[in-house]
Write a protein that binds this DNA or RNA. Structure first.
Lengths: 116, 116
DNA sequence: CCCATAGATTGACAATTGTCGATATAGGGG
DNA sequence: CCCCTATATCGACAATTGTCAATCTATGGG
């Protein structure tokens, strides 16, 4: 049995309209807000920027603490938020933890804004 | 960590590089965070969506209160935040206040994410 | 083994945020 | 004028957030 096809927006899709999305529903809004909230802190934006610019697109925590002038626990906390938002991924090698951008995640986040 | 000065940003800009922006500085980060913070609340995202979808791209407060299931003062408060972030503009006509998207503002916000 | 180091987790705290009810302001209509 | 409706502002409150110091965990080297 098929999951009810409640999609059924106007059966005739004209070619290039702005998607005719009526209004963002509460669930999708909360979803987008969760991701955008992770991006709403200046230090987290800088973390993303540093990671992106890092050698091989990754950085370990020790290289992130100093440029932000924040304590190590605080940096770890911000990194966790970014990981949980699906923006960064963590890979542990030896004693070090390397963070890198999740491919396409920033593009997806920006699309959520454009798609409002 | 003591990477010598071998950095030497190639004076020759090849055509389509990712801008070679080294790292987001604190001031720009705070700037971007201010705007993204306005976008980090689900009810504000829905407000933007409703305004965008509204007749003539605008809506008055009375049309925004009901679909969000929020009190009128709360909606006014969110609208103010969106205006101060440069995302919405307000025009008063008679007793009503009409809100509309600032042209290009959403695109600019999304570019801040992509440009990290 | 024991220790040193990288990083995560915890607990605390001040600051900020989202929400509401009450009140203020401002037009428009009798 | 006075009232009615639409919106903004204010004061309060609980919830969330960003930060730090202290502690825990894990990995690697002697």
């Amino acid at each position: 049995m098929n999951t009810a096809l409640t999609m059924e927006t106007t059966t005739e899709q004209v070619c290039c309209e702005p998607s005719e999305r009526p209004v963002l529903n509460a669930a999708d809004a909360q979803d987008s807000a969760r991701i955008l909230k992770a991006l709403s802190d200046p230090n987290r934006l800088r973390l993303l920027s540093i990671v992106k610019a890092g050698e091989g697109g990754e950085s370990c925590v020790c290289d992130l603490t100093e440029p932000l002038d924040l304590g190590q626990p605080t940096v770890s906390h911000h990194l966790k938020i970014l990981v949980e938002a699906g923006l960064l991924e963590r890979e542990k090698r030896g004693t070090w933890a390397y963070y890198s951008l999740v491919p396409g995640a920033l593009e997806a986040a920006s699309a959520r804004i454009l798609g409002l």
